[in-house]
Amino acid sequence: MGQRRAVSMADVARLANVSAQTVSRVSNGESSVVESTRLSVLRAMEELGYRPNSAARALKRGEFRAIGVMTFTLSTTGNVRTLEGIVAAAAAQDYAVTLIPVGAPSQDAVRGAFTRAGELAVDAVVAIMETHLASDAPPPYPPGFKVVVADSDDAGDRHPVVDTDQAAGAVSAAQHLLDLGHRTVWHVAGPESSYAAQRRRDAWQAQLVARGLEVPPVQHGDWTPRSGYEIGLRLAEEPSCTAVFAANDQMALGLLRAFHDSGLRVPEDVSVVGFDDVPEAESYIPPLTTVRQDFEQIGRLCVEQVLGQVRRTGPTTGTTLVPTQLVVRSSTAAPGRTGARRPRRA
């Protein structure tokens, strides 16, 4: 039995009793087609099982209506929620999103990702570059690509950058704890390779220095609750630790459990602030005070600016920072009268 011939535009035109040009206009969504004719063509397409050749249409129009999103990992809350924001904003503009994993944070991996972007027929690229590359050289963004960079500070002079105002968020967390009366604030930072972790750490430290306060040694985690838990067990041995700012909510969750297992009460003995405001944060025990990021706005701005390049109406350089919001819940309170914690359980 021979292979069935694919349904063509001419087949649809014959069944609908219209020209192939009219079928083409309906396929392309043009508004110049009379409504009754458009419905007739759509019925013929459905009856015959016709699927427009999107690649051919894209070549004719010179655009694919697709945005590539490059990322090193989807294991972090920030990357996943940024991607969700990009997908939602792209869909609102009738654009598809193609995910392009980068792999290792290296120059070669980034070059390879852009090569794949060219092969995958996308109009532009949003690069979520949250991690420093292995070398000190800037990421190799090829000329000719429409690119917006998210979660990075290394490209503002070459491409538009959209990011959370990491520094302001960290300052609001530290200020909140200091205004409650804590003598200093300990910090559980993210990985040293992370741009966001670096900016949050630097802003926390600068805030303490500006107030002439002791700067405790930085505790580096890896964004996971387990790393927060292990650090929390160590901090439970530090009587001077009455306030902790964690660089994300997952590490803050680990801290809460570690303090509980060590016989310390939150917030009576130790106050904890996180960063991100994940949906579960209000259900932590106790509900977590945290810094909220507006991932929906980040995604919207990434899509808006990268499509601005496609349409030649948007900026080609510069940095846009999205404000954060401190959300105060039950995990923070003023320290005891002495400013020190009560003894741990034996």
Rank of each mutant, 00 (worst) to 15 (best):
M1G: 09
V147L: 04
V310E: 10
L59P: 05
R65P: 01
G103N: 02
R300A: 14
M1H: 13
L59T: 02
R211I: 06
A203E: 05
R329M: 08
G232C: 14
Q21C: 06
T324R: 06
S331L: 09
A206Q: 10
S227I: 08
V110K: 07
D249M: 12
G78D: 09
T73R: 06
T319P: 00
S31R: 13
M9V: 13
S75N: 12
A88S: 11
V185Y: 05
G2D: 11
L256F: 08
Q297K: 00
R65T: 10
V33E: 06
R226Q: 15
V310K: 11
P139T: 03
I298D: 00
A104W: 04
G103P: 01
S152H: 11
W186P: 02
A333H: 06
T338C: 04
A236K: 10
S330N: 06
V7L: 08
A189V: 13
L178T: 02
G68E: 02
S19H: 11
T242A: 05
S24F: 07
Q198F: 11
A170C: 10
S331M: 10
A44Q: 08
R111H: 15
Y50I: 08
H220R: 08
G68P: 07
R257M: 10
V18G: 05
E35H: 11
R38S: 09
R292F: 00
R226T: 07
V161P: 02
A246G: 07
V215C: 09
A55P: 00
G2I: 15
H159L: 09
R211W: 03
R300Y: 01
R226G: 07
G232K: 07
T71K: 00
R183L: 08
L253E: 11
L301C: 06
E304H: 12
P335R: 04
W186K: 13
G68T: 08
I231H: 07
D163K: 06
Q175E: 12
V185Q: 01
R312Q: 13
D179F: 12
Q305G: 04
T338H: 09
T319A: 08
N248P: 05
Q93Y: 00
E214Y: 13
Q293I: 14
L233F: 11
G221E: 05
T338G: 02
V188L: 15
A170W: 10
T317M: 03
F295C: 00
H176E: 04
E230M: 06
P239A: 06
